[in-house]
Amino acid sequence: MFYTVDFNTVAQEFCTFYYQQFDADRSQLGNLYRDQSMLTFETSQLQGAASIVEKLVNLGFKKVVHKITTLDAQPASPSGDILVMVTGELLIDDESNPQRYSQCFHLVPEGNSFFVFNDIFRLNYA
């Protein structure tokens, strides 16, 4: 199958940008989502950029640092959608023990860019 974009490169660049922005100022992530976007964060399900950003901003911690362990990407449709699966660790505030997480993004092309159509986040407990 022929793809006009390198989905692995798009996924890598997206995740680098997403987590850097999340760790620096997660209130600025709204431009990555649209009104039809959905976030499942643990047990909460939200739809729309404003609701998603409100959830992310009010998570109850000030500082967070994400570290990607694995990143896998696949084409998700003939339209150019990309499915991205991330596992990693995050440090919250001044904790010294990282928490493991998994996150899945469904990226949809829009013009020369992509937006997050679906975002599923889970902490992975031992």
Rank of each mutant, 00 (worst) to 15 (best):
V108M: 03
G88M: 12
S44N: 13
Q12S: 13
E13A: 06
G60P: 05
K67G: 12
V116R: 02
F117L: 09
P98K: 08
G88Q: 12
Y19W: 10
G80Y: 04
Y3L: 10
M38H: 05
V53T: 07
G60A: 06
D81I: 00
D72P: 03
D72L: 15
V86Q: 05
E13N: 12
S27E: 11
T87H: 11
D25N: 15
E110G: 01
V84T: 08
F121G: 04
G48Y: 01
L56K: 01
P78I: 06
V86H: 03
S77D: 12
S27W: 10
L39P: 04
Q74F: 10
E110K: 08
A50W: 03
N124T: 13
P109F: 02
N8K: 10
F7D: 02
P98C: 11
G80R: 03
T16R: 12
T69H: 14
V86M: 08
Y19L: 06
Q45K: 13
M85Y: 11
L123F: 12
Q21G: 02
D93E: 12
K67W: 06
H106F: 09
G111V: 04
A73Y: 03
F114L: 04
N118I: 00
T87N: 13
F41M: 12
R122Q: 15
T70W: 09
K55T: 06
F22H: 06
M1G: 15
R26C: 13
L46S: 07
K63S: 14
D93R: 02
F115D: 00
